[in-house]
């Protein structure tokens, strides 16, 4: 673990890029995976990059292999072998379907991606401050709701009281026609 922490401190952009390339190539071992996991624990962007690399690796693996047409094969064979192609082959070895059978490195990469996905998932849960803000928001929403309903209720009661007083004082008939919108207060229905 000491070595890992030491490596962590040293991890710079170049070593990170190398690690990603190894993940893409399917050459990652347990120690490298652990290093990446530790390094990305406090860096969500780094964790996302690792997950993207792993997804790319997985996508490449799922590409269908098609047989080459005879004419294309003939043309490819006509291309002279070049010395630098060997280096390039090493660099892009992971593009070779024959190398995609590296089950162990796949499992390591997948396990790393899995742990990072879970970590990001956990991080996406609201923190304490957000929950406290949500509670405050609920309080404000309920306060406005209660206030609005209370006001509507009070207006309705006031109007009913006024009408009742008028009826009892003989200033209004017991049966009144339905009032239209031009009146100061219109109550169509209330059920609180």
């Amino acid at each position: 673990m000491k070595d890992i922490n030491k490596d962590l401190k040293k991890m710079n952009q170049q070593t990170f890029d190398d690690a990603i390339e190894e993940l893409l190539a399917g050459d990652m071992d347990m120690q490298q995976a652990e290093r990446l996991k530790q390094a990305s624990a406090s860096d969500q962007a780094m964790a996302s990059t690792i997950i993207d690399a792993w997804a790319l690796r997985k996508g490449l693996d799922e590409l269908e292999i098609e047989s080459v047409s005879a004419t294309l094969e003939a043309r490819l064979l006509a291309i002279p072998d070049q010395s630098q192609s060997q280096t390039r082959n090493n660099r892009f070895a992971w593009l070779n379907p024959a190398n995609w059978q590296t089950g162990q490195s796949w499992a390591i990469g997948s396990a790393l991606a899995m742990s990072l996905i879970i970590a990001i998932g956990i991080n996406s849960q609201p923190n304490r401050a957000e929950i406290l803000q949500a509670r405050e928001d609920i309080r404000i929403a309920l306060a406005y709701l209660g206030k609005s309903l209370n006001q509507a209720d009070q207006l309705t009661r006031d109007e009913l009281n006024q009408q009742m007083h008028k009826i009892l004082a003989g200033q209004a008939p017991l049966r009144q026609p339905y009032r239209d919108i031009d009146n100061p207060v219109k109550i169509e229905n209330i059920d609180l």
Binding site: Y144, L145, L149, A152, T156, N189, D191
Partner: peptide, 28 residues
């Protein structure tokens, strides 16, 4: 619409959405 009050230029409306006798939403 369960409440509709208009007075002095102010309006209050309360609506409820019921589906199969169950309240699915309320708006003020």
């Amino acid at each position: 619409q369960i409440v509709k009050v208009k007075k002095d230029g102010a309006e209050t409306h309360v609506f409820m959405k019921m589906i199969d006798g169950k309240i699915e939403g309320m708006t003020v």
